[in-house]
Simulated scan of single mutants.
Amino acid sequence: MVGHQRQRASRAFTVVGQFTPLPLDGDVRRFESKENKQKKKVKMAPSRPGGGSSGVLSSVIFQLLARLTSGYLAFYFLSTLSLIIWKSLVLSYPSEALAWDVGLLFLLAALDLLRLFCGVRGTLTESELYILVNLFVTGTTILLTVYFLAWQTYVMRADVIISSVLLSFYGFDGVLALSTLVRLTRSDKD
């Protein structure tokens, strides 16, 4: 009886009904063919034009902050759009100004997606061009955020608070992008 239970416990059926033995008592077995072993060869990152590996040059903190900033921008976008809708219903909002504010808010969201793409792509590929584009787009998004902070038709205290937080995120992001760019250009000289 015990042998029968052990034999049954050592076997399992996969979804398609094929018989596959399972390891017993911590016995780990691997069934690999020569083809699978050859496919599992580790591929190294391509070397930079200056030579040598460049695994330490990408900035994980920069990538994390870029993603965190984009997450906050989703909150900022929805909050600002809600505030604009509320202001247009409660206050006398000129229709031209309403169109500009909504259009600039959507432009800010689109530019932030471009900033995130260029920042992450630039650090992963260690490309100076992508990080330069990220810095340029970050400067543009800072100007748009300052517009929503000070120059839109009606500025409320909530606008000031959420825009100030977004500006600080963009400032940290720009500093980290600049330091990553400096690190990449120094590694090219070596």
Rank of each mutant, 00 (worst) to 15 (best):
Y147G: 00
K39A: 05
K40M: 09
T140S: 08
F117A: 15
S53V: 00
R8K: 14
L81Q: 04
Y147H: 02
F75P: 07
A45S: 10
I161V: 13
R183Y: 07
A45K: 09
K41P: 03
K34C: 15
G171H: 05
L176M: 12
N134I: 15
A150Y: 06
L78P: 07
L178D: 15
R121P: 05
K37R: 09
V120P: 01
A150G: 04
T138F: 03
V175N: 00
N36G: 09
I161Y: 08
L129I: 09
L107S: 15
W86F: 07
D173Y: 00
W100P: 12
T20A: 11
I161R: 11
R157D: 11
V42H: 15
S53N: 02
V102C: 05
V133I: 10
T185L: 13
E96V: 06
S70V: 09
L57Q: 05
L81F: 14
L83F: 15
L81P: 07
S70L: 13
V133N: 11
S53W: 01
R48A: 11
R48T: 12
Y170N: 05
G139T: 04
S95M: 06
F136M: 10
A9K: 10
A74N: 02
L83D: 13
V90Y: 10
I131R: 03
W86N: 08
L89I: 13
L181R: 06
T20G: 03
Q38W: 06
V165T: 03
R67T: 15
G17D: 03
Y130C: 09
L107R: 06
R11S: 07
S58I: 03
I84S: 00
S58G: 10
S127M: 04
V2K: 03
M156G: 05
P23W: 14
T141A: 02
T140D: 11
L116F: 01
L105K: 01
F148M: 14
L98H: 08
Q38P: 07
D27C: 09
S187T: 08
L149N: 10
V60P: 04
K34I: 15
G139L: 09
V15D: 13
F148L: 10
A97P: 06
G26I: 00
L181M: 08
G51K: 03
A45R: 11
P21V: 02
V16S: 06
V155I: 09
R157A: 15
G51M: 02
Y93E: 03
D173R: 02
L167K: 01
V120S: 10
F75L: 12
F75Y: 09
E96K: 12
Y170K: 05
S33I: 13
V56R: 04
E32M: 10
V137M: 06
C118T: 11
Q5A: 09
S70A: 11
A150V: 04
L24S: 11
P94D: 02
A110K: 07
S54E: 06
F75A: 12
T20E: 15
F106Y: 08
D188H: 12
E32L: 06
T69F: 00
F13D: 08
G26W: 00
T185D: 10
V2M: 08
S33P: 08
L24C: 07
A9C: 04
K189V: 15
S168R: 12
L167E: 00
E35W: 04
E35Q: 14
T140R: 07
L78H: 11
L143W: 01
L135M: 12
L105I: 02
R121I: 08
V175D: 00
